[in-house]
């Protein structure tokens, strides 16, 4: 494990290092900086973000990794031009609220999304409204505000890329990510 972490650190250092290395160029233009996201080298999230959690074999976070667990469902969908949590997602929201309440050290990042039509920045704000609606659904069930951060990806990270109603519906969505997944 140590070795893997070291490799990750080295890779990050390499990539981050590009930032402080101005590229010389004849035309004295822009310098190049590279930000390859941290996903370049995969590490199991349990060990990297929750030191101490590897003591017991029944880590609560292991349940999040289990594809058969109901907690593996992380997406909530919204109607067109709507920012109201649909009733059908209430059981899922309750499930995740219980998990957060039982594991106070685990944090959640909610990423809201919007379909591609119209202004990128306005869509970013629409995605935020969806993320906020889901956050409110969780805090109403008692989850502390500071355990959750709601942000928006707007139309920038579509799960579906066709220009069709089905696709747009798939992209009107908020996703729940746990510590180690963001």
């Amino acid at each position: 494990m140590r070795k893997l972490l070291a490799v990750t650190a080295l890779a990050s250092a390499l990539l981050a290092g590009c930032g402080s290395t101005p590229m010389s160029s004849d035309q004295a233009g822009a310098s190049v900086e590279d930000r390859n996201a941290t996903s370049t080298v995969q590490t199991p999230p349990v060990q990297t973000v929750t030191p101490g959690a590897d003591g017991g074999s029944l880590s609560p976070l292991a349940e999040l990794q289990n594809p058969d667990s109901p907690l593996s469902r992380r997406s909530v969908y919204f109607d067109f031009d709507s920012f109201v949590l649909r009733q059908e997602f209430q059981p899922l929201v309750e499930l995740h609220a219980r998990f957060l309440l039982a594991n106070a050290s685990v944090r959640m990042l909610i990423q809201g999304n919007a379909d591609e039509r119209g202004s990128r920045e306005y869509n970013l704000a629409l995605g935020q409204k969806r993320a906020d609606a889901l956050r409110r659904g969780l805090t109403l069930l008692g989850v502390p505000e500071d355990q959750i951060e709601s942000v928006s990806l707007g139309e920038e990270k579509p799960r579906c890329i066709d220009s069709s109603e089905d696709c747009w519906a798939e992209n009107r969505r908020a996703d729940m990510l746990y510590s180690g997944e963001f």
Binding site: E33, D34, A37, T40
Partner: peptide
């Protein structure tokens, strides 16, 4: 054209 920033995220 010159690249000021390259990223795997938007």
């Amino acid at each position: 054209p010159q690249t000021a920033l390259a990223s795997l995220e938007p």
